[in-house]
Write a protein that binds this DNA or RNA. Structure first.
Length: 733
DNA sequence: GCTTCTGTTCTTTTT
DNA sequence: GAACAGAAGC
C-alpha cells in the first residue's frame, strides 16, 4: 500500500492531521480549509495504514447531508485502496441516527417497544397541546415554553426527578408537566428527538455490559462540526470514549451559530481540558476565497473575544473588493441584485454560481418577487420538506399505527382523517379513560366499561376504525413496502379524501401521496438494519422521521440559490449577495437587546466566507418589514470591515430629493395616508415603467398626487431618480 | 363538520 | 403584510 496516495495534494497541516499518530486531536478547521477531505482521509488512513478495523470507527455528524457526503467520500477513498473484496464500513451517521440504531438493538434494555416511533417537533407540539387540555392546565400555559423546557432539560441530561430535587420551587408546573408528558410518551412507545439522545445515554449508564460493548467497539471516534454539539452529545462521546479510545474532533469555533438551540461552543475548550494530551492542529489555509474577502472575514471575526484563535490565509490573488451597496428601500435593493445577476448571466456566467443570503426568511419575499418578475430562475432552500407535509404525515401516521397500535400521536392524527364521524367529544372521553387507566387510546377502546361511557354509535365507529387498521396490517404485511403503502393510502380512504377536497392544493396533495409510494420504492434498507432485525417498514418510518428530505425539485438546472445565512453554512458560491445588512436585522434586534453579538458576528463571518470571488453586502435606507415601513441604519458589521477591502457602490444621501430633506419628511417612510393617496395615482410602487431617456425602470416610491405626483424610479441602466410624473412622460409597462 | 372571521405573531433550524 | 391558529358562525 502506497500511503503517499492519501497524502497527495494535501498541504502540511492537512497532512499532519491525516497522518497523525494515534491519539486525541482537535482539528481547528477554518472555513474553506478542506475539512471534510481531511476527515475522510483520516478515516481512510486509519483503515489502510493503521490497520484499524472499519467496525472500530465511529464518525458523527449533525446533518444527514454531511453524513451522506462523508459516506460517499469514504467509499471512494477506501474503494481505491481495497481490491474489491467486501468493505466493512465504519459507523457514519448523525448523532440521532447512531443513537436510534443502538436503541433499536437494545430496545428491551431501553424500555422501548421493538417498533418504537419517533416524534418530530410538530408531533411533539400536538401531543403537548392535547395533554395541556386533558390535564386542565389554564389557557395561560405556554405550550412552546413547555416544549422548549422539556427539550432543553433532556439535552442537559435532566429528568423531571432530577429537576424536582434541584429547583422544583422555580419550575414546579413545568416539571410536573414534563412527568406527565414523559409518561404518556413511554406508554405510547414514542420518543422525541432529544429523548433519543438521552435514552441512549441512560442505556449506557444503566447497563455496564452494553456500555463496555461499545467502548470495546468504538476505538476511534471522530466528530464533525464539534462546535455544534450540545451537552448530552458531548457526554455521549465521553462515555463511549472511556479511558481507552481516541477522539478526534473537527470544528471551527468561529462558525458556531447554533448556540440559541443549545450548542455549546465551550465544548471545544472542555475537550482540551478533558483530554489533556490532545494535540491541536490548525487548518488555516483557505482554498476558497480571494484575498479581499478573506481579509475582511479575518478582520470582522477578530472583534470577538474568547476565540481559540486562528487566522486564515490564502495564496490566491486580491480579487475584487467587497461591494457595499446602499439601496433606498427593499424593492430597489432587490432590483439592483437582480440586475447584477442578469448581467452576470448575459456575460456567460451561470445562475448556479450566485446565492442571495438573508438573516431571516421575511426578507426573501421581495427578492423572490423580483427574481420572478425578471424571469431569473431561483430556488429557495429551507421550505416545507416532503415528510413535513400534512398529507404525508397523515399517511405516515397510518403506517406508524400499523407498526405500533399504542402510538397515540399517530392515532389522534388519523382516527378521524378521513372523517369517520368520530368527533371531539368521543375522543375526549377516550382520552379521559386512557388517562384514568394509564393506558393508550387504542387500548382504551377495548376497556371493560367503555360501553357505559360512549354511545353505541361512537363505539362502533371506533371499533370499525380498529378493524380497518388491523385489516390494513394483516392484508399488507407480506407485500413489498411500496405496495403496502399504496394499499394503505387507498384503502384508508386518504386518497379519496383529498380527491374530494375542493381546495386548491388537493391535486397536489394526491400527487404527494403517490410520490410517497415512489419514495418507498427508492428506499433501501441498509444491510446493517437488515442484519439487526429491523423490518423494512420500521426502517422507512425512521427514515421519514429522522430525514425529512429536501424534495424541492427545481424546474431548471441553472438557478440562483436563496437561503438564510444559517443554512448557507457549509456551502460556497462564486457570487454572494447578502441583503438587509442593517441594524436590527443583522445583527438582529434581539441580539442587540441582550448584547449577545458574538454569535451574530460569527454568522457574518460564515456569510462572508461563503464567497469565492465576488461579495456584495447591501443595506437600505428604509425597509417595509412586518407591514410597517421603518428607517434603518447600516449594520455595525459594515463598519467593522477594513476600508481597503471595500468599494462603496453608492454613498448615502447623494440622490435624495431636496424637498424631502427640506420638509423633514422621510421620503421612503410612506405613511398609510400617503399610500392611500397614491392608490388613485397613475403610478404606484412596484409599477414597471419606461422613460424615453432612462429606459426601463420600476417605481419604488411616490410623493404627492395629481399634477404634483413625484415618483422615484429605479432604472435598470441609469440608477435611481426622482421625476415629476406629469413632466416625465412615463409609459406604464 | 366545515367555512369565515378575528386575533396573534413575526429570528435563525436540525434531528 | 401575511400566515397561521382558534373560535365563532352556519
Amino acid at each position: 500500500m502506497d500511503c503517499s496516495l492519501l497524502l497527495d495534494g494535501l498541504n502540511e497541516a492537512q497532512r499532519e492531521a491525516v497522518a497523525a499518530p494515534i491519539g486525541h486531536y482537535l482539528v481547528l478547521a477554518g472555513a474553506g480549509s478542506g475539512k471534510t477531505r481531511v476527515l475522510t482521509y483520516r478515516i481512510a488512513w486509519l483503515i489502510n495504514i493503521e490497520e484499524v478495523a472499519p467496525s472500530n470507527i465511529l464518525a458523527l455528524t449533525f446533518t444527514n447531508k454531511a453524513a451522506g457526503e462523508m459516506k460517499s467520500r469514504i467509499i471512494q477513498t477506501i474503494a481505491s485502496y481495497e481490491d474489491g473484496s467486501k468493505i466493512y464500513f465504519p459507523w457514519v451517521g448523525t448523532f440521532h441516527h447512531i443513537a436510534v440504531r443502538i436503541l433499536k438493538m437494545h430496545h428491551n434494555d431501553a424500555n422501548l417497544p421493538k417498533d418504537f416511533q419517533i416524534l418530530d417537533t410538530e408531533d411533539q407540539k400536538r401531543l403537548i397541546k392535547k395533554l395541556v387540555k386533558l390535564h386542565n392546565y389554564g389557557d395561560d400555559f405556554d405550550i412552546k415554553k413547555a416544549q422548549n423546557f422539556i427539550s432543553y432539560q433532556k439535552e442537559q441530561g435532566m429528568r423531571a426527578d432530577h429537576l424536582r430535587a434541584r429547583d422544583y420551587h422555580k419550575y414546579q408546573e413545568l416539571i410536573d408537566f414534563y412527568d406527565i408528558y414523559q409518561e404518556t410518551c413511554d406508554r405510547a412507545g414514542v420518543v422525541d428527538f432529544s429523548e433519543i439522545l438521552l435514552r441512549c445515554y441512560e442505556l449506557m449508564l444503566n447497563n455496564p455490559t452494553i456500555l463496555n460493548y461499545y467502548r470495546n467497539k468504538f476505538h476511534h471516534i471522530l466528530v464533525d462540526e464539534f462546535q455544534d454539539t450540545n451537552k448530552i452529545q458531548y457526554d455521549l462521546i465521553k462515555l463511549w470514549a472511556g479511558k481507552e479510545n481516541f477522539v478526534t474532533i473537527v470544528g471551527d469555533d468561529d462558525q458556531s451559530i447554533y448556540g440559541w438551540r443549545g450548542a455549546k461552543i465551550e465544548n471545544m475548550q472542555y475537550f482540551l481540558q478533558d483530554y489533556k494530551g490532545a494535540t491541536t492542529i490548525r487548518l488555516e489555509q483557505n482554498y476558497r476565497s480571494s484575498k479581499h474577502i478573506l481579509n475582511a472575514a479575518n478582520c470582522i471575526i477578530a472583534n470577538n473575544d474568547n476565540r481559540l484563535g486562528k487566522k486564515l490565509w490564502t495564496d490566491q490573488t486580491d480579487g475584487e473588493k467587497i461591494k457595499i451597496y446602499e439601496a433606498f428601500n427593499e424593492k430597489e435593493e432587490a432590483l439592483y441584485i437582480c440586475d447584477l445577476i442578469a448581467k452576470h448571466h448575459r456575460e456567460g456566467g451561470k445562475y448556479t454560481d450566485c446565492a442571495i443570503l438573508y438573516r431571516n426568511n421575511a426578507l426573501s419575499r421581495v427578492l423572490e418577487e423580483m427574481l420572478f418578475n425578471q424571469k431569473i430562475p431561483y430556488r429557495i432552500y429551507g421550505g416545507l420538506r416532503f415528510f413535513d407535509r400534512a398529507e404525508i404525515k397523515d399517511a405516515v401516521a397510518y403506517l406508524r399505527l400499523i407498526a405500533n397500535r399504542d402510538d397515540d400521536v399517530a392515532f389522534e392524527r388519523i382516527v378521524n382523517t378521513p372523517s369517520r364521524k368520530i368527533g371531539n367529544s368521543t375522543l375526549e372521553t377516550l382520552r379521559q379513560i386512557a388517562k384514568e387507566e394509564n393506558i393508550t387510546m387504542w387500548q382504551a377502546i377495548s376497556v371493560g366499561n367503555v360501553q357505559n361511557r360512549l354511545s353505541s354509535r361512537a363505539l362502533s365507529a371506533l371499533v370499525r376504525f380498529c378493524e380497518l387498521i388491523n385489516a390494513l396490517d394483516s392484508e399488507t404485511a407480506d407485500l413489498p413496502l411500496s405496495e403496502q403503502i399504496s394499499e394503505v393510502i387507498y384503502n384508508s380512504g386518504l386518497i379519496e379524501h383529498f380527491q374530494n377536497q375542493k381546495a386548491e392544493k388537493s391535486e397536489e396533495r394526491v400527487d404527494n401521496l403517490k410520490e410517497l409510494v415512489s419514495a418507498a420504492l427508492e428506499f433501501n434498507i441498509t444491510d446493517e438494519e437488515k442484519s439487526e432485525g429491523v423490518s423494512e417498514l420500521s426502517a422507512f418510518l425512521t427514515h421519514a422521521q429522522l430525514e425529512a428530505g429536501e424534495m424541492q425539485a427545481s424546474e431548471s438546472s441553472d438557478f440562483v440559490s436563496m437561503m438564510t445565512l444559517h443554512s448557507a453554512k457549509g456551502l460556497e458560491f462564486d457570487n454572494i449577495f447578502i441583503v438587509g445588512v442593517e441594524e436590527g436585522i443583522f445583527p438582529s434586534q434581539k441580539s442587540i437587546d441582550v448584547l449577545e453579538l458574538d454569535e451574530e458576528r460569527r454568522l457574518a463571518y460564515v456569510g462572508i466566507t461563503r464567497a469565492r470571488k465576488k461579495l456584495l453586502l447591501s443595506f437600505t435606507e428604509s425597509r417595509i418589514l412586518y407591514g410597517r415601513s421603518q428607517r434603518v441604519l447600516p449594520s455595525r458589521f459594515i463598519k467593522e470591515l477594513p476600508d481597503e477591502d471595500l468599494e462603496f457602490v453608492r454613498k448615502r444621501g447623494l440622490i435624495k430629493p431636496a424637498s424631502s430633506i427640506a420638509s423633514g419628511v422621510k421620503s421612503s417612510t410612506l405613511s398609510t395616508a400617503q399610500q392611500y393617496q397614491s392608490a388613485d395615482n397613475a403610478f404606484k410602487t412596484g409599477d414597471k415603467v419606461f422613460h424615453e431617456k432612462f429606459g426601463n425602470g420600476i417605481v419604488i416610491n411616490t410623493e404627492g398626487n395629481g399634477d404634483h405626483l413625484r415618483v422615484q424610479i429605479a432604472f435598470v441602466q441609469n440608477g435611481v431618480k426622482w421625476l415629476i410624473a406629469r413632466v416625465a412622460n412615463l409609459q406604464k409597462k
